[in-house]
């Protein structure tokens, strides 16, 4: 049992937290701007590389410099929106999706051109689990990731429920027409969506980089689990995205558990398929997601 918790459940929760933070941005963009943003993962990568540069320059802990990277990345996201997405506000979703695809290629090329493709890391070496939690094996960085994710999620919750702009965002996500009629400034809402989405994406990316390493495809590789989490939770529902992210993360790790005998239930080479399968199954049987997200 303790093996199950230590080696399957805790890693699943850590991964789930990272997915969840990224998925909030995907879900909000999907809900408010009505398109699947393929560039979200590469926005994340960009933020991580900015963090890496700041860490190399200052020698500070990644979490201390991450806010600067978040600000710069948010600025980039807003600028990209202004230049490449705004012309398509009233076009079909496919135009925005293809524009985001082009953006994905462009951002990745810039990252590779500036920083190269070699692996880098924010934190070096191997950590030992926290002694005071025995027999639970929890690494300090995992405690940091889980705590950080919870703090950010609470902050998002407060933003969405207590502030005027947050309420406007939820209203726009639920019903854009109605929100506009009620006098909500859609452009402000959209700007805020990009800022919030990229801040959370950078946070997820930095957490992932602390856990593993920094490379140019790291964000792109998270894209599908993030989409899956957003759909699982219900499009446009930030809380649903959090739940979806946790579920996808945990299920991915548990799929390798030897439920029957000593062989893994599912060959780990099919691990990437877990997120897809959940996603497709949800779309077919419960497209509104777990939390009654927006239906198109």
């Amino acid at each position: 049992m303790i093996t199950f918790i230590n080696f399957y459940l805790i890693p699943g929760v850590v991964l789930g937290c990272i997915y969840a933070l990224g998925a909030i941005g995907v879900s909000l963009t999907f809900g408010i701007l009505r398109f699947a943003n393929f560039a979200h993962g590469d926005i994340m990568t960009f933020g991580v590389y900015i963090t890496l540069t700041l860490v190399l320059l200052t020698g500070a802990h990644p979490l201390l410099v991450a806010p600067v990277a978040m600000a710069l990345t948010a600025l980039l996201a807003v600028a990209i929106d202004r230049l490449f997405y705004r012309p398509f506000r009233s076009s079909p979703a496919i135009m925005l999706m293809i524009a985001s695809l082009g953006m994905m290629l462009m951002i990745r090329s810039v990252v590779r051109f500036i920083w190269g493709v070699q692996l880098q890391s924010l934190v070096r070496g191997i950590e030992q689990p926290l002694a005071w939690l025995e027999p639970l094996r929890l690494l300090p960085k995992h405690l940091l990731i889980i705590t950080g994710a919870v703090v950010l999620m609470v902050a998002v919750h407060l933003l969405l429920t207590r502030t005027k702009i947050g309420k406007a965002m939820r209203a726009t996500s639920d019903n854009a027409e109605l929100a506009r009629v009620c006098g909500i400034d859609t452009e402000t809402v959209i700007r805020m969506t990009w800022i919030l989405g990229s801040v959370l994406a950078v946070a997820a990316g930095v957490f992932l980089a602390i856990d593993t390493h920094v490379e140019t495809m790291m964000g792109f590789r998270l894209l599908v689990p993030m989409f899956a989490a957003a759909i699982l939770g219900g499009i446009g529902k930030p809380y649903g995205a959090v739940a979806g992210g946790l579920v996808i993360g945990i299920v991915e790790e548990l799929s390798a558990y030897p439920w029957i005998g000593t062989e893994p239930l599912l060959s780990p080479s099919y691990k990437a398929g877990v997120a897809f399968t959940i996603m497709v199954a949800m779309l077919i049987w419960r497209p509104q997601g777990l939390l009654h997200g927006r239906r198109f």
């Binding site: 699947a36 979703a93 999706m97 899956a228 897809f276 497709v280 779309l283 198109f296």
Partner: peptide, 19 residues
């Protein structure tokens, strides 16, 4: 499924086929 959902579902199915 409506358009966006069909898009994501078919993307997922193609990846499962690839796996």
């Amino acid at each position: 499924l409506r358009s966006d959902y069909l898009a994501i579902a078919t993307l997922g199915i193609a990846e499962i086929l690839r796996l």
